[in-house]
Design a protein around this nucleic acid. Sequence first.
RNA 1: UGGGGCGUCGUCAAGCGGUAAGACACAGGUCUUUGGAACCUGCAUUCGGAGGUUCGAAUCCUCCCGCCCCAGCCA
Length: 558
Amino acid sequence: MKMTEAPGVNFIQEAVREDLAAGRYTKVITRFPPEPNGYLHIGHAKAICIDFGIAEEFGGLCNLRFDDTNPTKEEQHYIDAIQDGVRWLGFDWGDRLYYASDYFAQMYEWAIQLIRDGKAYVDDQTADEIRENRGTLTEPGKPSPYRDRGVEENLDLFERMQAGEFPNGSRVLRARIDMASPNLNMRDPVMYRILAVPHHRTGDRWKIYPMYDWAHGLEDSIERVSHSLCSIEFQDHRPLYDWFLEQLGIFHPRQIEFARLELEHTVLSKRKLIQLVSGNYVGGWDDPRLPTLAGLRRRGYTPASIRNFCDRIGVSKAHSVVEFALLEHCLRDDLNKTAPRTMAVMRPLKLVLTNYPEGKVEELEADVNPEDPSAGRRKIPFSRELWIEQDDFREDPPKKFYRLSPGREVRLKYAYYITCNEVVKDPGTGEVTELRCMYDPETRGGWVPGGRKVKGTSHWVSAAHAARAEFRLYDRLFTRPNPDEDGQFLSNLNPQSLEKISGFIEAGLAGAPAGARYQFERLGYFCVDPDSSPEAMAFNRSVSLKDTWARIESNLKL
RNA sequence: UGGGGCGUCGUCAAGCGGUAAGACACAGGUCUUUGGAACCUGCAUUCGGAGGUUCGAAUCCUCCCGCCCCAGCCA
């Protein structure tokens, strides 16, 4: 890594810095405010990194606040899962765990204040009427017939809304702002709706629930949040956010918006993710092909790699779609330094060393991680019959193919030089079923005293010692970079996004705990899936190693 | 066509009037018991377009073009 990288100050850091310098705020408080109605995904990870990152950078604090203002969609188990996800990502909110629902009483008081000031009114129009009278993008809205109701009547009606006297949806409380505003959000937005349904935290205490625009700024204000960071679609809501705070004359946080993350070949909208899960297009919220935190975690992504990714994509207001390759790079970068190496064969081809004594077993030594000498060495059993990768042999090798072929000598990693003498085929299909080779006893460990070089090195496992294992190979979930480009994202699913194959692992790996990560040499990074057992190990391929040969070969074909 | 926002390399993204950072990707090379990693080299005479201001413009002004968001009693 070069040290020429600029300090990198994004526009939010700049704004916070200025606010502090100007004395507008004395302490930086941010918040991550998920609604507990779904699972966290990598887009949330970006927001989490920004929210907690800004707080930390300026010596402040970040609140974890559940924005639980809509009991029809929210559930306790989402609250648990979200906390688990934030913690896993590596962030700590300490004792700053808050709920919007804890502020409902205060919000109610403030609503009464606005009614008294003539700045809010109860509207008896139906939802359809409200929509029709809101006007359009080019035409102003029409005032509600109830807009000029007297203060006492509004007060009475509002109290009775909360008392449960009216059916759901029959009335709303609206802010009295400007029905002709070019910003639709300012055309007398709804503050409360009647929703006599039990809330997962407040039970049946409330018959009315606050809307986002009314509630969010108040929540921020109550918590003395200095900088309320959110995504770009809330820009149009900022005038309203500010309006409520001004009318109430309470502590006024600053809302700053940034572009949300989009990733190629996947979807990050709650709605689409739900469709994938409930339609059984994937195995669940933690399907390793999903960009959910649970999915990435099961796939083998490390928290550090995701944080690093969020760091590298930067923060701006420009609509951006990041290539998947960057996320993969961040994972490889992390795992290369930390993952223990081991050998596994995904697509086995039998190899017999004809001059190696039958029944003999040697213990050979190998690095656990060549990038990290402190990781030590490990022992691997070697014997006469081995499994190697089918891809490592070509009967008729193309140009630049350095691996094994008839008459050619290659190295078995950490073991011996071998030469292929005979190719055994299935007489029926012509398929290569076995390679018969000779090893050079002088090359033990994979070195040759004189310096005779060999161009290829293959990984292998001893047939007598290896354990069977399942490998789950994942590919992009969608074939198109922008899956919903045609509005038909479900029809753009990649039918080859999951391939399960059976191969061999070093025996010592059986029994490795779920979540354990390894590099299978020359193949990629894998992690133990939770549905493994010592007798039936299953490994998820987190990401492959870069494959130069595959690139050369595909360039040759072009 | 109302309002808001955004347009700098294939993808992100610095740049804040003084003569286009960096990362990923890609291409070539060195090295190598992972065709991995590491290392080296190359990769925007140009910043959506056109005018203008200026000794000097990606940065300032004007007009134009394109993309995104907003008409939930969702957040």
